[in-house]
């Protein structure tokens, strides 16, 4: 369904770009992706986009950011900035969901299950750090498809 949510992609991107190298360097596993394999986000049907976006924001807010604390104060502050931006967007997406404009089809449900399985296949810190390092995969997909 359609769901128009304003968000500052530029700010989130800037925050992620500032810590991307640091975060991705903490993820030694090249052979597994949380978001993009085996099924790419880019193959999601347009009708499922709102649902996937909504659930992925829930995923990051509920499961990812809080397990990403590092020893680096600068990195932690940038993660806080991204997490708080995600929290704000998640709230707006929630309103869409409540107004039934964000229906989950079979395909998106499968996709989300796969993402959670990928996530739960690792220990929580590794999974959270890998997911955070894949934020640009989510942002690229959102910009391309929205």
């Amino acid at each position: 369904g359609a769901c128009r949510v304003s968000m500052s992609m530029t700010e989130i991107r800037a925050g992620f770009t500032a810590i991307k190298a640091n975060i991705q360097a903490r993820d030694p596993i090249r052979t597994l992706s949380i978001l993009s394999h085996p099924h790419s986000l880019h193959k999601v049907k347009s009708s499922d986009r709102c649902c996937i976006t909504h659930h992925l924001f829930n995923f990051y807010v509920d499961k990812v950011f809080k397990h990403c604390k590092t020893e680096d104060s600068y990195v932690n502050r940038k993660i806080s900035s991204i997490a708080n931006s995600f929290l704000s967007v998640r709230r707006k997406l929630g309103h869409c969901h409540e107004q039934n404009q964000c229906i989950c089809g079979q395909e998106s449900t499968e996709k989300l299950k796969q993402i959670l399985a990928n996530y739960e296949g690792l220990n929580v810190t590794s999974a959270a750090m890998k997911s955070l390092g894949e934020l640009d995969i989510l942002l690229d997909w959102m910009e391309k498809s929205h």
Binding site: V61, D62, F65, K66, K69, S80, A83, N84, L87, S88
Partner: peptide, 9 residues
């Protein structure tokens, strides 16, 4: 402390 820290950490 942002809202995220208040609610999730």
């Amino acid at each position: 402390q942002g809202e995220y820290e208040r609610e999730y950490t």
